[in-house]
Nucleic acid binder design. Structure first.
Lengths: 208, 208
DNA sequence: GTCTATATCGCGATAGAC
DNA sequence: GTCTATCGCGATATAGAC
């Protein structure tokens, strides 16, 4: 990892790239561990081991375990924004909503959807003070909220259910335990699981 | 639950009652703390403080923190069995299912539904070795599963969705984050929240 | 900025008197 | 069986050399 070439002009940018790459590696490791074990069971030692650096080095990049978790949440928000931006803007609103729900379920089944304990108050306070996280979440919520209202207006979503309830219900698919149970059962492929859970979410359990 | 009390020495029975009452108080405290903070954030010191005894005394009743959690789970399984037994056996199967879902949501909104982290493997292994828990869970699952199949047969539940998926979906209402979010929003009463979540569960988000 | 080594401490569990 | 006092361990975070 040590660089011998001392050429001044390129070195700064290169070092900055290395720094960014390392921080990305850290956040990706945190993301995976958060999805696998959750915040409380994830240890900073594990993160350092997975990245391949010393724990003290890790603290040079992020000043606390909570900052690590926040960075992972900011990253996944960014991934969600990228996905939303990749959607065909001309599709039906309800199909946009199904696409984002499908994306969240896929991330979860791949073991790449970090989830924080909703009970930890200090952790939540930390996140609520993170501007990048809040701004990203707001932008996503606005976009999804717009689709929800459009889908209610065009008669594809039930107009009697408050839009906020629908937004929360969609978000809850990110930590829905049903996909994991079905995957553990081994009776269905990931695609089948996603289709089933999407069906129960939008169409309900009762017969139509 | 069975109590005959025919034995002459009343003193022993009384002491046993005191013992039982204290253990009940412990388990109820654990149940509340598990619902409020979750397993990882709940400390044994808190339990002892809430019960009003020393921590060492607590360990005379339960040999580990995991045993405490298991006892709370066994208790809530028993409460669920009592509720199921109180239902009118002649009601329509789908109404039985809605009643149990409603009961789980109510327990959760009251802050009395303990939920364990599904990631903690040693905790799960401990529970899977607990006969009282497994037997109770199996009995409940059999009863609910019977109603699901009956409701599919009488045309009130979608027969295309596997019964096991429906069972998991109902169980997942015990840890659904949506009721808590709605309660925190302060825009709805508990009854309204339950009605809304039940509606999205059985009827889905899409218009009918 | 990276490392090794260590400080600090919260928490599960136990010892031992009564 | 209850208590006070303590152990032991693991985890977050830091010190200080390079």
């Amino acid at each position: 990892m040590t660089q011998l070439n001392p050429s001044p002009p390129v070195k700064i940018s290169f070092k900055a790239q290395m720094l960014q790459a390392r921080e990305d590696a850290i956040v990706i490791a945190v993301n995976r561990l958060l999805a696998e074990k959750g915040f409380d069971l994830m240890t900073v030692d594990e993160v350092a081991l997975e990245v391949g650096i010393a724990k003290a080095s890790l603290y040079k990049h992020f000043s606390s375990k909570e900052d690590l978790a926040a960075a992972a949440m900011v990253r996944v928000i960014g991934l969600a924004q990228d996905f939303l931006a990749s959607l065909n803007a001309k599709a039906r609103p309800i199909d946009q909503l199904k696409a984002i729900a499908r994306w969240m379920l896929l991330q979860q089944l791949k073991g790449e959807m970090p989830s924080l304990p909703s009970q930890n108050s200090t952790l939540r306070a930390n996140l609520m003070g993170n501007k990048a996280y809040l701004d990203g979440l707001m932008q996503i919520s606005d976009q999804i909220g717009g689709w929800i209202e459009a889908a209610q207006a065009d008669g594809s979503l039930d107009a009697n259910v408050p839009a906020l309830v629908m937004l929360y219900t969609l978000y809850s698919k990110a930590c829905d335990p049903v996909p994991g149970f079905l995957k553990a059962g081994g009776q269905h492929t990931d695609d089948e699981i996603i289709a089933i859970v999407l069906g129960t979410c939008f169409d309900g359990l009762a017969v139509r």
